[in-house]
Amino acid sequence: MNTSLPRATSSHTQPDTNSGMKSYVIGFVLSLAITAAAFGTIMSNAVPHPWRLVCIVALCVAQLLVQLVYFLHLGSHPDQRTNTAVFACTGLLIAIVVAGSLWVMHNANVNMMPTHVTVQGAMSRE
């Protein structure tokens, strides 16, 4: 233990720290830029209204990917493969839960009886 630990730290940390700092700086700068772009999309008139939702969702996904890669170090590296697989499965579950809820409730709202029609009125028309 005494002999293996210092060797491990000295051979690992130096390049690790440098490339690690670079990774955090890149991630931070990219995140700042994407955040500014997302707020700019809404707070300025640079993007026409129909495209705004598409634009902020795309920026949101981009920023999630940036932070997953540069901050959480998710990727195809052997150490990270299990984490990435678990994350992908969770992503699928989230997509099903969120998209399913929105879809079902949207349909329920669209097909709901209009408020000016009463139950009595609807039944007498049958």
Binding site: T17, G20, M21, Y24, V25, F28, S31, Q67, F71
Partner: peptide, 9 residues
Amino acid sequence: SFTFGAGML
């Protein structure tokens, strides 16, 4: 988030 990353290094 960035300062925590720097701390981890």
